[in-house]
Design a protein around this nucleic acid. Structure first.
Lengths: 347, 347
DNA sequence: ACCCGTCCCGTAAACGTTTACGATCCTAGG
DNA sequence: CCTAGGATCGTAAACGTTTACGGGACGGGT
């Protein structure tokens, strides 16, 4: 089966009518439509995407850009695949296909995105892993291509995004630890160039201030969000004089390495030190003592992202009305025993 | 910047010449070419992909199809992102972009692939997670679209693929364990509908036969390739009468759950039972005792896949000559202590 | 002076769709 | 019988690019 032309002459109908029949246009006899659909099915005809895109200037494809930076590769885990599931559950209802656009290691994400946008291969985009200064927002806004970011924008201008509530998590974690009597609390985070790293520490800092505890930069341990990173955090923790009695992790995978390093030094999480972590994943369940951490449904976050995106696409916006296109996604505390180690309560 | 037409009249050159200049065709003055390239760069012009594809019947995009089936989502880890890195390192040299096509949970992979093929959104495909009977091979062959599978084909006809050497791993694992005196060896594997599950157990069975050990189906423990699956394997192991003295895992993540379950029962891996696993990942390093497992460079496997694929694309085949398009990818044994538990040697 | 070849460029067709527009047929109302 | 209008369909233009083809300018060889 070559194209719509062959299908049309096989049916002895004009190609215009065939197109209208396939696309559900109103002015076509129901009986003809049935014949066309049957023939298309039988001959396995599917419209050529290039021709269609060229004509109507739309591809019906949404792109999810992911950076497989060294760091991401190590920790992204199944996060993106799970988000993808949530996205698709919404997008497919509108016959929008989702593709993933992996930015190569050695290419600048901005340049990569520019290429993809210019090629006009997708109608809209979801970008991820936003940075403190991220030129991609303005690029997309200027190109007038609808998008939503997984990760907030810190620039002044308002862009659509949804982001996990790092701020709130750091806050709650500090609150909880302080309530247990801790006052010297370390925190691990990736580079502050990455929004995640910045926001997380900001929330921590403000929470400390609220409790009247001085913010000590030495307690902010920058490390990779991997097991190795966790091990390294343990290392640095042990080297600190006046060792912290509690530590907040940004990523549960790190707990594996951290536990290991601490155990090697004879320090037992939950007994000699309190550990709280952001973002629980299934594997954290197998740590012992069980990790106290914050969790959410990543699938539902994908759904939220899709809805924000559709709401900013002219063709779908009336179906997804919103008053705000910026979502801070809440997380839920899953108590474990890793923070059972308590000091005297403050009062 | 709209299209090549605007660019052409801005330069006061015909659109044909502009196109030739941009595409590096020979019959264009070098000085004009420079002007064109400069103007394109300055105005940010990039050729519209739809127009180009429509004309030359090629998209310069390669698709990597992944199934985010429940099982895959849980264990795929960063396997696909790492493979993607290897693929891109080759494909980008030929200006071929890679996109990932995630098949939705609730859609049949075959139907999904059919849609993607018919839409003609990619020039060639990499498919993954091949099944015992996998109609996708014939679909792609019939559609004459170049492809390579990550995972072997078990049908009679010859298709291009590269696959990890499950067979060899099971073989070596059994050899090693038998040499240590074990004769009652359990194995974990996913469903035998999946090639991986089938081949792995086949290799195990043949190795046992070679050593004159009877194959006992009760020792084949089907489970998910996740921590939970590992825990479950431990459960079943404990329930077996005449408990095996050794167990072979298909996936290192499972070791986390298995260790946990065994420890709960007071059985220490490496002391009371021998554990060997397929496919090492970074996190396995943090298990204690260290897991004995087989490892390879997944990145390089991606490179191999890309080369097989290009060798079967007419436009590139002369650059990648091969006599065979089927690769069994070897793995390397990384000895740990999880299999230090030895029985009397046989002789 | 003539011809041929090379270099460069412009023209226009073609790729497969969608869709605005107009044509045809039929029915119903007068 | 005439006509308005709805239902259905055919025609052709348009989307943005690549590329086959042909033509003009120029230079060198005879």
């Amino acid at each position: 089966m070559k194209g719509i032309r062959q299908l049309a002459e096989h049916l002895d109908i004009s190609i215009g009518t065939v197109s209208r029949a396939l696309n559900g246009k109103p002015d076509v006899n129901e009986e003809t439509r049935k014949r066309v659909l049957a023939a298309a099915e039988q001959l396995g005809y599917v419209a050529n995407q290039s021709g269609r895109s060229l004509r109507q200037g739309t591809t019906n494809v949404i792109g999810l850009m992911i950076q497989s930076s060294r760091e991401t590769v190590e920790n992204s885990d199944n996060f993106f695949l799970t988000v993808t599931g949530g996205l698709q559950s919404v997008l497919l209802r509108h016959k929008l296909d989702l593709i993933m656009l992996p930015c190569p290691h050695d290419e600048d994400p901005y340049e990569y995105l520019k290429r993809m946008v210019a090629r006009r291969i997708v109608d809209a985009l979801i970008i991820s892993e936003t940075h403190r200064v991220d030129k991609r927002f303005d690029l997309l806004a200027k190109a007038k291509i609808p998008f939503v970011a997984l990760g907030r924008s810190l620039s002044g201008t308002q862009h659509p995004w949804a982001d996990l509530d790092f701020d709130g998590v750091a806050n709650s974690a500090v609150d909880r630890l302080v309530a247990h009597g801790h006052r010297r609390i370390a925190i691990s985070a990736p580079s502050s160039d990455i929004n995640l790293g910045f926001i997380f520490v900001e929330g921590y800092r403000r929470a400390l201030e609220r409790h009247g505890i001085a913010y000590d930069p030495a307690l902010v341990l920058r490390a990779k969000s991997s097991e190795q990173g966790g091990y390294q955090v343990g290392d640095e923790l042990l080297k600190l004089q006046d060792r912290p009695t509690a530590v907040i992790l940004i990523y549960e995978l790190m707990a594996i390495g951290l536990y290991r390093r601490l155990m090697e030094a004879g320090i037992v999480p939950g007994r000699n030190i309190a550990v709280v972590s952001f973002r629980e994943a299934p594997r954290a369940k197998f740590l012992q003592p069980a990790l106290t951490c914050f969790r959410t449904s990543v699938h539902d976050l994908g759904v939220e992202l899709a809805e924000i995106l559709l709401s900013s696409m002219p063709a779908y916006s009336q179906e997804y009305p919103r008053n705000t296109r910026q979502t801070i996604w809440p997380l839920e505390l899953i108590p474990g025993e890793s923070d059972s180690f308590q000091l005297m309560a403050a009062e």
